Amino acid sequence: MPTYLPALRYGGPIRSVHALCRALQGAGHDVTVFTTSVDGPSDSNVPLLQPVDVEGVKVTYFPSRVLRRLYWSPPMGRSLDRSVSTFDVVHLHAVFLWPIWAAARAARARGVPYVVSPRGMLVPELIRAKSRLVKSAWLSLIERRNIERAAAIHTTSAVEASHLASFGWALPPVVTIPHGVDDPPALTGEPLSADVARAIAGPPPVLALGRISWEKGLDRLIAALPAAPDARVIVAGGDAGGQAAALEQQARDLGVAERVTILARHVDGADKEALFAASRLFAMTSLSENFGLAAFEAMRRGLPVLATPTVGMAEIVREVGAGCVVDPAAPSIAACLNALLADPDKARLMGRAGQAHVIEHYSWVGVARRMGELYDRVRATTAGRDGRP
């Protein structure tokens, strides 16, 4: 089986699912991943229609030639129909995508139990705000059946579980298991990109790292800057739908452009670690966030976190004193910025509290163990119904 080391330019679910698969493989599970080669407007340079080794995990990439936004791939559908009966459990990550429907349909047809992880995509407010008619139709015609007939639903936070419950569906068991958090990588001496080096040259910034998109609520953070004169913000991440330009215009309109740096690209490796190391605190002011993995990465590195209540990990920030959870209004965000920037000792204590909590509770080994226990329960329950061994 050939080995392939992808250059992942995405964060969030793609990275967390791959990390989960690595940890499950390390715990003794035999893991197989089906995905497509879609990489934004182009395709990843990967072997197709054959398993390749990606950091110890068997991954098969399938082509998607048309309807790429849905990741439609007839070759994947045919492979699922042929092979799904050889698996004990099928785990589907995300919703509103053709491969999820195809895998659920194939699993049901052959009596194989499946688990669905919505990955933060079933948030009523976000569905209403974007592509409401299309997504509502998909929910009614496809997704509701997929979810109601699953053996279990996996959510990553209590916030995500409450979003799911609000649909009023006849749900199978809902199990909350958080993402794991990778340890910081070893330093390699890799030189920094010029834009990152320039960005961190000034006073310690407030960092917002992740996709630059409307649902991330980055406009809320910028709106707080006039009332937080000592705050300097770095926003870094891939630009979704031209949001970076809108944020730059907002900063100019508010007269704070000199205190806002936007790196509209995926940031990883030495650049990412340099941003974390240079920052005073991390901000996540999303309209909705089922977990908030980037904020957990910041906590793992000892940064205090400013979060809004609709971020899934906000409950943990509040519980362990790892930062502040504030109303999304600009005055509330500004008050937290001012308090933590004015008291570095308090900020460091919060950062250490968050770091200790993440190390103790969010290792991938522990997450894989809990996920494996969920798979065992699903298998046992299904075997009692359909006679599968």
Rank of each mutant, 00 (worst) to 15 (best):
L337S: 03
G387V: 11
V46W: 02
G255T: 14
A151F: 07
V66G: 15
A329C: 09
A264D: 13
A339L: 06
A245G: 12
T60V: 13
P6T: 04
A334S: 13
P184K: 09
S79Y: 15
A129E: 11
L49D: 10
F296T: 02
D43F: 09
L24I: 11
A104L: 12
G269N: 11
D268M: 08
G366C: 07
A106L: 10
A94Y: 04
R318S: 07
M299N: 00
A103R: 07
D230F: 11
K272G: 03
D386L: 13
F62S: 07
P51V: 03
P229H: 14
H29C: 12
T35E: 06
R348A: 03
L337G: 01
L20V: 09
V260N: 08
L374Y: 09
S288H: 00
A277E: 05
R252Y: 12
A109S: 15
Q355A: 02
I100R: 03
Q250C: 12
M313R: 00
T156P: 04
P309M: 12
A224S: 15
V320D: 02
E373P: 07
S136A: 15
T176H: 05
I316M: 00
S64W: 08
D43T: 09
G366I: 03
K216A: 07
V181W: 02
R379M: 13
P74S: 14
S64G: 13
P309L: 11
A104Y: 08
A103Q: 09
E143N: 09
G312V: 02
L303H: 01
N290H: 08
H93N: 15
G12Y: 02
D376W: 12
G242H: 06
A208I: 08
T60N: 06
A270K: 08
R82V: 15
G26I: 06
P184F: 07
V174R: 06
P63Y: 08
D53Q: 05
F282D: 00
G210H: 03
A201H: 10
K130I: 10
P203K: 12
A322W: 00
P204F: 05
V52N: 04
T32S: 13
A150N: 04
I153C: 09
P185A: 11
A347R: 00
G238W: 02
L209S: 05
A383L: 10
L92R: 06
R211N: 06
S16A: 12
F34S: 07
M284D: 00
P203H: 10
T308C: 11
K58S: 13
G210W: 01
T310S: 11
I147C: 08
R220Q: 15
